[in-house]
Design a protein around this nucleic acid. Structure first.
Length: 596
RNA sequence: GCGCUCGUAGUUCAAUUGGAUAGAACGUCGGAUUUCGGCUCCGAAGGUUGAGGGUUCGAGUCCUUCCGAGCGCACCA
C-alpha cells in the first residue's frame, strides 16, 4: 500500500470528521512538497475553502491537527497559506523500505490479460539505418518493455518497406554501375552497399536533370524524363509484373540489406516477434478497398482511381487506390491493420512513426472507423519529432545523415577511452572489456535519445552525446557500478539486511529520506510512463534517483558507519537503489554494469 | 493559403496535468576526499516562460490575437 494512498484516505476521513464533508478519493490529490519547505507531501486546500466555509489556512490547520493526532503516518505538519505540508514518519519510510527491499518485483504489475501490438522501426530496404531510426527503435523497444512491466502481453512487429520506386532506384544504379559487387567482394555491410547505390542514383539523376533542363528549357519535364528515372519507373512496372530478372535482383539486394539490418539490430539490442513485408501484403489492402466501395465508404472516379471523401470531417479527398489499380501507402496500412488484428486480436495497437505522418494516421483511423472496424479506438499513433543536428536538418541526399553503425562505432571508442582513463577494469579479459564499452556506448546513446519527450523534436549534438557526465546514461551506470562495489565489500564483511531494522527507532538523515521517497515513487512513475507511452518519464526518474543517491553518498558513511544498525540499513538502501536503477534502465533497453 | 505541432536560463531539457519563490544538466566561476569508486559531491552567477489580452484564490500550463519555427496538404513510401 503506497504512502500517498494511505494519506489520502486519512485526509478523506479528516474532511468527514472535521467538516462533515463526504469527498471522494479521486477528488483528493497530493503533490511533492517543494524542497524549501518542511515535509514530503503537500495537500492544497484552496479549492476546499468554499465547501468548508473556512479560509484555506484554517482548513489546512484543522486537517493537519486531526491527522497528526489520529494517524501514525505523519510525524509532523505545517501550514503555509493554503498548503498543508506533511512530514512522513521515519518509521513509515523504514517499513516501506522493508517492503521494497523484499519485493523484487516492486512496481511491476501482474498480467492484466490484455494484448498490445507495437509496430516500430519499419525501415526502407534501400539504405542503412540512421539516427532518426535510432530514436524510433529505442522508443519502440522501451515502450514495449514499459508495457510488459505494466502487465500487458506485448508483441513487437516490424513492417519492412521492401517495394516501390525507391527500391528500384538502388537497383537501377547497381545494374548500371555495380559491376557485380557484393558485400563479400567489397567488405561492406549489405545495407551500406545498397545505400551506396541509392546515393549514386541520386547523383546521376541530378546531373541528368541539370543537363536535360538546359537542353529542353523545362525543368519539370526534365525531372520526369531523365533517362535514369525512366529506367527506375520501368523497373517498378516489371517488378509489379513479376519479371524474373528484376525479381531476382530485388531478392538478392534485399537479402544483403536484411543481413546488414540484422547486424545493426543485434548491436542495438532490438528484436521483433514478427516481421511483415509490404511486398507480401499488397492484396489485403486492395480487398479492404473493394469492401469500402461496396459500403460506399469510398468512391471511384471515372479514371478508375478510388478515393475517400473526408471533407465532411474537415479533411480533404484521399486517394486509396491508383487508376492502374496499384496500391498506395494508405492502401497498405488499411490491409495491415486488419491482418494485425487477425493475428493478435489486440486490445491496443501502437504505431511508432514520425510526426510527419500525423495526417496520414488521422486519415487512416477515420477510414478504419468508417469501415466499421471495432478496434479502431484501440489504435494509437505514437508520433515523435525529428532528430536535428546542430548543422541543421538531416538530409540523405546532402550527406548530412548520421549513420547508425558509424555512430555506434564512435561511441564505443569514446567509452573505451573514458574507461581506460578510469582504470578500474584493467584486470578483466579483453572480450569482457569490449562488451563493457558497448554497454556504455549504448547507454549513452539510448539515454540521450530517450530522455526527451517523444513528441518534441530533438537536437542531437554529437559533442554532448558522448559526454559521460551530468544528465547521461553513463552517469547512472556509474552510480550503479559504484553501489555494486560497495555491495561486494558488504558481502565480504557479511553485512546483510535484517528484518528488525524497522523495529528500532532509527533517525533518518534528510538525504536518506529523499532517496527512500525516490524509491517509493517508482510504481507511480512506471504507471505514468505506461499511460503516456513515455520512456522519458522513466529516464527522468532514474536520473533523479541516481542523483539523490549520489548526494546521500557524499553526506553519510555506509560501510564506514560504526553503528551496526545504521550500517545495515544503508547497505540495504544501497542495494535497493541499485536494483531499482537496474530495472528502470532495463525499461529503457539499457544495461547497467557491475564494474566500469 | 489551409491544417497539425512547437516556442521555458548562453545551450540541451524538466516543471507531478491549473499550485508555493519556474527546476536540472552542460558550459562559466569558486569550493570539497586522513573514510566506502572524483565518470562523484557542494556553492555562485544566469529567466519579463516569444509578445499582448482574457478566464480565477492562483496560468509556463486553459481561451484568444499576433510573431517565429518545424511538419503536412503527392496517382512517393
Amino acid at each position: 500500500m503506497y504512502i500517498e494512498q494511505q494519506l489520502i484516505t486519512v485526509i478523506q476521513q479528516a474532511f468527514q470528521q472535521n467538516f462533515g464533508l463526504a469527498v471522494s478519493h479521486t477528488d483528493l490529490s497530493l503533490q511533492p512538497t517543494h524542497p524549501e519547505f518542511e515535509g514530503e507531501y503537500t495537500f492544497v486546500t484552496f479549492p476546499w475553502a468554499g465547501r468548508c466555509q473556512q479560509r484555506p489556512e484554517e482548513v489546512a490547520r484543522q486537517l493537519g491537527h486531526w491527522i497528526k493526532d489520529q494517524s501514525p503516518l505523519i510525524s509532523d505538519f505545517n501550514v503555509v497559506q493554503g498548503f498543508l505540508n506533511f512530514t512522513v514518519a521515519d518509521r513509515v519510510w523504514l517499513k516501506q523500505l522493508a517492503v521494497i527491499c523484499k519485493d523484487g518485483q516492486f512496481g511491476f504489475l501482474p498480467s492484466n490479460g490484455q494484448r498490445v501490438v507495437i509496430e516500430f522501426s519499419s525501415p526502407n530496404t534501400n539504405k542503412p539505418l540512421h539516427l532518426g531510426h535510432l530514436r524510433n527503435n529505442f522508443l519502440g523497444h522501451a515502450i514495449a518493455e514499459i508495457l510488459k512491466a505494466s502487465g500487458y502481453e506485448v508483441y513487437k512487429v516490424n513492417l519492412v518497406n521492401d517495394r516501390g520506386i525507391h527500391i528500384c532506384k538502388s537497383m537501377v544504379a547497381y545494374q548500371q554501375f555495380g559491376q557485380g559487387e557484393t558485400p563479400e567482394t567489397t567488405g561492406l555491410k549489405g545495407d551500406h552497399l545498397v545505400g551506396k547505390y541509392y546515393v549514386q542514383f541520386d547523383q546521376v539523376y541530378k546531373e541528368q536533370v541539370a543537363s536535360l533542363t538546359q537542353q529542353l528549357g523545362d525543368r519539370e519535364r526534365a525531372v520526369k524524363e531523365a533517362p535514369i528515372f525512366l529506367r527506375a519507373r520501368q523497373m517498378l512496372q516489371k517488378w509489379e509484373q513479376g519479371d524474373m530478372v528484376v525479381r531476382a535482383l530485388w531478392s538478392t539486394m534485399n537479402a544483403w540489406v536484411y543481413q546488414g539490418f540484422e547486424a545493426t539490430y543485434e548491436r542495438l539490442g532490438i528484436a521483433f516477434d514478427r516481421t511483415y513485408y509490404e511486398s507480401q501484403i499488397d492484396l489485403l489492402g486492395k480487398q479492404v478497398v473493394e469492401e469500402g466501395l461496396l459500403q460506399a465508404v469510398f468512391y471511384k472516379k471515372q479514371d478508375g482511381s478510388v478515393w475517400a471523401d473526408l471533407t465532411g470531417e474537415g479533411l480533404d479527398h484521399k486517394l486509396v487506390l491508383r487508376e492502374d489499380g496499384t496500391s498506395v501507402y494508405m492502401t497498405q496500412d488499411l490491409g495491415v491493420a486488419d491482418l494485425r488484428y487477425a493475428h493478435y486480436r489486440f486490445d491496443r495497437s501502437i504505431y511508432v512513426v514520425g510526426n510527419e505522418q500525423d495526417y496520414h494516421f488521422e486519415v487512416l483511423f477515420k477510414l478504419m472507423r468508417r469501415l466499421g472496424r471495432s478496434y479502431t479506438n484501440n489504435m494509437y499513433h505514437l508520433s515523435y519529432g525529428m532528430v536535428d543536428l546542430p548543422t541543421g536538418k538531416m538530409k540523405s541526399r546532402e550527406g548530412t545523415v548520421v549513420d547508425a553503425d558509424q555512430l555506434i562505432d564512435e561511441m564505443v571508442n569514446v567509452a573505451a577511452q573514458y574507461t581506460q582513463e578510469l582504470g578500474k577494469i584493467d584486470d578483466i579479459p579483453e572480450e569482457e572489456a569490449q562488451q563493457l564499452y558497448h554497454t556504455l556506448a549504448m547507454g549513452a546513446l539510448k539515454f540521450f535519445l530517450l530522455r526527451v519527450e517523444a513528441k518534441k523534436r530533438l537536437l542531437f549534438d554529437p559533442q554532448a552525446s558522448i559526454d559521460f557526465q551530468g544528465h547521461t546514461g553513463p552517469y547512472i551506470q556509474y552510480t550503479h557500478a559504484r553501489i555494486a562495489a560497495i555491495l561486494r565489500k558488504a558481502q565480504d564483511a557479511a553485512i546483510a539486511y535484517e528484518g528488525d531494522i524497522l523495529e528500532r527507532h532509527l533517525a533518518l538523515q534528510p538525504a536518506e529520506r529523499v532517496v527512500m521517497m525516490q524509491l517509493h515513487k517508482f510504481p507511480k512513475k512506471l504507471r505514468e510512463a505506461a499511460e503516456a507511452y513515455s520512456p522519458a518519464i522513466i529516464a527522468q526518474y532514474v536520473f533523479e534517483l541516481a542523483k539523490s543517491y549520489n548526494r546521500m553518498y557524499g553526506e553519510v558513511a555506509i560501510l564506514q558507519e560504526r553503528e551496526p544498525m545504521l550500517r545495515t540499513l544503508r547497505v540495504c538502501l544501497s542495494a535497493t537503489v541499485a536494483r531499482t536503477i537496474q530495472r528502470s534502465m532495463e525499461l529503457l533497453g539499457i544495461t547497467v554494469p557491475a564494474r566500469m
